[in-house]
Design a protein around this nucleic acid. Structure first.
Lengths: 221, 221
DNA sequence: GCCCCACTTAAGCGTTTCATAAGCCATCCG
DNA sequence: CGGATGGCTTATGAAACGCTTAAGTGGGGC
């Protein structure tokens, strides 16, 4: 998940950036409203962490402009404790949640998690591994940038594998998540499915571990 | 943002109240039509979430009275699935959108966000995609510049698809927003509806993605 | 009360998808 | 080297899916 951090204070900004990266997010840190707005318009970020204490009314303006452009990327605003009106303005302007400075990193992490949980199923929700990108929202799959048409079962299999990319997924566990616990399914269905998926992607993307299961390597080396 | 919740059921009311507060809104929860009407007249709320299942025709009356008093606070109406007539009355009486009980909290949140975005956007109640233009205020639909007569359901379907134009909308999600959560509804009502809509527009505008759902392409190429 | 309209249900049909089966290939043991 | 096991590949019939048309249902307007 990619987070756009908009914060003009150097010290605070770098602290937040480091904290977010430690939590496993990728971060773009921008210092001013103008470049922030451009970045938001690109829709490259999955979440925006916006400081409302920017010089001028920059922070609010960014938000208002973005919402006017019908960009509904979730926005989490940060305000000073005394900035009650700013906070209210922020929510009015279309923020999804707010944090009061100063805050604990745990608080920030919790808000981000809650927000990403909330937007799941509504906005884009991508898993990316190597040359593969899988969008759970639109059910679209890209392989080396090209869209690939998958059936429901193929999609489910790919999702299961990509969700634990780099790790082996036991055959049994795959069968469960594809067909449910009632194993009425014949013992060869999975192989057929794997084959179909491989021929739509490439034969190297899905690796078999004899006797155990399958995996998608995280580093395609 | 302050939301006025009008709901007589204690359990449901407190559940919705908690959910809204978790989403960062402040909530006033009122149980009956009379006090609701007073509160609406104060114009203290930014949005009203109104249950039409109040005893008597209280719910509708509140709405009609409020609109008669020229109060244009957005109203999101909640109705039971079987209360089709109540729903129609609700929209006729001046509701801005409706939800069918029971609903997911995410659905409620999405509607509230969409509504608040809509009212913020300088009364731009239009969604435009390709040759399609849908006016949420007047419920008018234009296709290639020509007005098209749609029924309520067709309109709701088109709205759902256009609100996420360019993205796939899962069949399940469409069924939820059209019929509510308890899909007691027959399993091909949606297909019939899609067919009706396609034949009023064109057969290319709505694309099916087998096994997943439907979408309206943002770029008709 | 009657008719009309919107809507759901039902049924038929073509297409796609999927599980099964059956044969082939690779790897692992002796 | 050869059997055995596990995985790969391909073909096929059945089931699922979606489209379409037609018939049934129930509410609102007259």
């Amino acid at each position: 998940m990619h987070i756009l951090l908009v914060e003009d204070d150097a010290q605070l900004g770098s602290a937040i950036e480091r904290a977010l990266e430690r939590l496993g997010y990728t971060v773009s840190w921008l210092r001013d409203g103008r470049s922030a707005l451009n970045a938001i318009r690109d829709r490259s970020a999955d979440l925006v962490l916006l400081d409302l204490g920017l010089p001028g009314r920059d922070g609010i303006d960014v938000l208002v402009e973005a919402r006017r452009a019908r960009i509904d990327t979730p926005v989490l605003v940060m305000t000073a404790r005394d900035g009650l009106s700013a906070r209210v303005d922020g929510l009015d302007a279309g923020a999804d949640d707010y944090l009061i400075k100063p805050f604990h990193v745990e608080e920030l992490a919790a808000r981000i998690r809650s927000l990403s949980r909330r937007m799941r199923g509504l906005a884009v929700n991508c898993i990316e591994v190597g040359a593969l990108s899988l969008d759970l929202g639109s059910s679209e799959v890209l392989f080396r940038g090209q869209p690939v048409e998958l059936t429901r079962r193929e999609f489910a299999l790919l999702q299961a594998l990509m969700e634990s990319a780099g790790r082996l997924v036991r055959r049994e566990s795959l069968e469960n998540s594809l067909y449910g616990l009632d194993h009425v399914v014949g013992n060869n269905a999975l192989e057929v499915l794997v084959h179909a998926l491989r021929s739509k992607l490439s034969f190297e993307t899905i690796r078999n571990v004899r006797g155990f299961g399958y995996m998608i390597p995280r580093d395609p080396q």
